[in-house]
Every structure is written in structure tokens, then in C-alpha cells.
Design a binder for these strands. Sequence first.
DNA 1: CGATGTTAAGTGAGTCAGCACTCACCAAGG
DNA 2: CCTTGGTGAGTGCTGACTCACTTAACATCG
Lengths: 211, 211
Amino acid sequence: MQVNSVETLLANSLAQSALSKKQQDVLKACLTLFAEQGYDRTTTADIAQLAGVSEGTVYKHFNNKREILDALLEPLKASVLPAVADEFVAETVNQHFASLGAALRFLISDRMRFVLDNRLIIRVFLQEVLVNADLFASALAMAKQRFVPAVLPMLVKFSQPQHPLTLESFRPIFGLMLTYLLPVILKPELQLDVDQATDQILAKVMPALEA
Amino acid sequence: MQVNSVETLLANSLAQSALSKKQQDVLKACLTLFAEQGYDRTTTADIAQLAGVSEGTVYKHFNNKREILDALLEPLKASVLPAVADEFVAETVNQHFASLGAALRFLISDRMRFVLDNRLIIRVFLQEVLVNADLFASALAMAKQRFVPAVLPMLVKFSQPQHPLTLESFRPIFGLMLTYLLPVILKPELQLDVDQATDQILAKVMPALEA
DNA sequence: CGATGTTAAGTGAGTCAGCACTCACCAAGG
DNA sequence: CCTTGGTGAGTGCTGACTCACTTAACATCG
């Protein structure tokens, strides 16, 4: 599976949308600036300057500043949560992993890489969530709705009869992933070795799942 | 130990500081508004209105809007991280717990309650972190510096000789706490049963720690 | 003890800078 | 020439901050 990075995501949606080079530059500049200083503290003058265009150009395609933010978050909502999730799920399900460990190793490292690659957009998204309130709930619900019913069954079939696996069984994995990912999201210039982190997570978590 | 809630924290620092009733109302209004709509989207008119004062009053004590934000975050930095942490540590260390499980149960539920009680300030803090960048690193460093050397030894002495406990041993606990706390921070009106969550965390985590 | 000065707390209309957004104009490609 | 993409000086509004004034609390003194 091609990793869906910000660049990929953005590039995809940029390629699809009939945006001129300069207008794509506007989006890229906004991603950088919004992630760095926040949406509210970024002026349209900032955007124009970093994108190397005039302020008028910024408004040629986008009717207002808010629409730029939406244009950035839209791939995250539209692609990442449903479409990419579907693609991801299809790929994943087709792999027919030999063991629970193998399946989890793939899932964990793939999703961590995803977050890592998209850290800037996720940062912007988080900023928005902290101000919007139920954006979070709907995103979480959407992710669950798409992700869980497709992935969970594949994992559950590895259950030992005496210890059936449920969604709750995988909470420690989410938690551990968070401990590795949060610092990187909050301070994007930090480094993270995904493979090493994945190994550490599996080492902590597999005994309990196999018991 | 008295739980250090926002109200407690704020009340403490409000009582200490020679702020008039109306000026305390300003701070309370700011906490609500900043947590809800964000610092940048809150106008001084909003603040004055919710606090039930004139805009002039807002500026009687605070030289600018930024100073109000600082006044709100200051207790979190000044009290929570060092002072309250010390107090917490002192209380904790004095308890001489019978077992690792007992110590962890106290620590986990106490810190979760703390986060829960302070969720509004923490929300505001998070917003700021996402825009400030190295605020996070310094906060994390400070917390580690204060918290770890005092608490960790107490926990480590429960180690089995063949399985020495380190800070890394407790990563799953942080992770699990995050899975319970993050939703509440992102959507403050959610409920959380701390005791139940603590039980669930311990159930998942104790086997690995005692092995 | 009223009268009077002094200070601090509070008010809200007013000011002014900064920023989102516009528009009249240009250039180039079909 | 018309369309599409681009320009940047200009505009109007919003929102942070000010200031001349009022009110209240309380010393100080004849």
C-alpha cells in the first residue's frame, strides 16, 4: 500500500482539483503556516508572501480564508477517514496474515507511518477540534464506523477460544501508539523510528493478547 | 490529598492574588470562553459581557489580552507542575503502600481526577501548545524532572529481582490513561468514571508488571 | 462627626491599527 | 478580443486597547 502522506494526500487532491500551480502553492503555504502558528494567527498577507503570490490570487479560487482551511481538512475527512480507510482495509484484509502478531505489526506500523506523514494536517485538525468541540466526536464516530467493522473481524478470528478478542482488547495498542505519536504531533520536528516503536508496542502487548 | 481542581487551583491563585471580585469574574469568564471557542476567537467584548463588567475593567488589572491567558496558565505551570507535584509527591511517598497495585491505583486515579478536574485549563493549554511548539517540550521536561525522580523510586522498589521496573515499564499506563482522558479533554461534556477506568487499566497492566 | 481630600475600582464611548476581502486593471494563450 | 489567471493598492470593519469621567471606600482634620 502506498503510504498516504500529507504530500500524497495533498498531491492527490491537488492533482484532481483543477488548481493552478500558484493556487497549489497557496494551499501548501497554508498547511505550513496553519500548522506552525495556527489558523487565526496566520494573515492572508503571510499566506500570499510564503506562497509567492499576490493576495488577490489567494482569493481567486477561495472565497474566504475559512475555505482554505476547509480545503486542507477536506482530504483528511474525505480521503483519510472513509476512502483511504477503505483502501487500507481492502489491502489489509487481502493480506491474509499468518498470525495475529503479523497482522498487528502491519496495522500498527502502517497507521503510525500514516500519522507521521500527515502530522502537519493532523496538527491543524487538532487545533480545530479544540475549538470546534463536536468535530472530534463525529470524526471518531466516522473512523470507528469505517475502520472497526472491516478490521476487527480479521483480528478476532485469531482469538483463542478461552480468551475472545474484542475492540477493548486493543485499547492498550491505541494507548501505546498515542504515547509515541503525541510528542511528534505536538512537536513535529521530533524524530520517530516507526519500526522500533512497533516492535516495542508488540513486545508489551502480545503476551496479554496471546494468553 | 485535596484534589487540585481548576476551581481549586484557580480559587487558590485567585484568593492569593489581590484581585477584586469583578476581576476574578473576568478570569473565570476567560477560562470558559477560551476553553470553548479558543483564545483568538474570544473578543474582549465577549469577556466583558460574560463577566458582567465593562471592557475598561478587563484592562484595569491586565495590560492586555495576552496577560489574561498567562494569568490562567500560570497556575498550571507554577502550581501544577512544580508545587502541586511536590505536594502530591510528598503525600504519595508518605503513604507507604502495601503493594505495587495499591500504589498504582492511587497514582492513576489521583492523576486522572486531576486532569478531569482541570480539563478546561488543560484544553486552553493544549490549544496554546499546538501554536507555540516548544511550550510542550518544556512542560514535558518540567513534569518529568519533578515527578519522575520522586515517584519512580517508590514504585521501583516493588520490582521483582528478575524483572526490574523502569520508567519504560509504565508507558502502557500512560497510554491507557490517554485513551480515557483524551476524549474528555477534547469534548469536556463527556463523562468518565475514574474508578472504573482505573480498575480497567490495572486489570490490563498488572499481569505484565508482576510477571 | 460631618466635611474634605485621596486613592482605587469601574465605566463605556471613542480611537486606531491590522487584517480580511475587493476591484479595476494587466498579460498571455487560444 | 475574450477568457482565465494574476496583481496589489485600496477599503471598511472588527476588535484590542485608552482615557476622561463617575462612584465608592476610607483616611484626615477642623
